[in-house]
Amino acid sequence: MADFDLKVTENDGVILVTTNGYLNNYGGEQVASLCLQKISEGKRKFLLNLANTDMVNSIGVSILIEVIEELQGTSGTIAFCNLAPIVEKTFNIMGISKYAKIYANEEEAMAGLA
């Protein structure tokens, strides 16, 4: 269901994924598919800007664990920025923040990933 879309850019070796809409199973699969493809192309740094995603569900987020898992095997990094407070709390409860850095905004994230 198309309540979700994303935009991809690359900046200083960082794949920036900007999401828009509800991160459910469909959204999670879109993000994971893109990231896994980029990893297979040799990309190792990912930043997900969730400024326009104020609602997630655990299925969508759990699909992102696949990306974390894949990056672990390649010494890659994934980070998130512009999280709505409830999304950040959800990430904390699920432990995502243990494996991925969370930044306040894109500027701080890009500096952190440099």
Partner: peptide
């Protein structure tokens, strides 16, 4: 009770719903 350390490298990555409800 789900645990991220166990979910990574596990086939079953879901199963977070009850934990989230209890925490929230």
């Amino acid at each position: 009770i789900p645990n991220i350390d166990e979910k990574i490298n596990s086939e079953h990555k879901r199963g977070w719903g009850l934990q989230l409800m209890k925490e929230l």
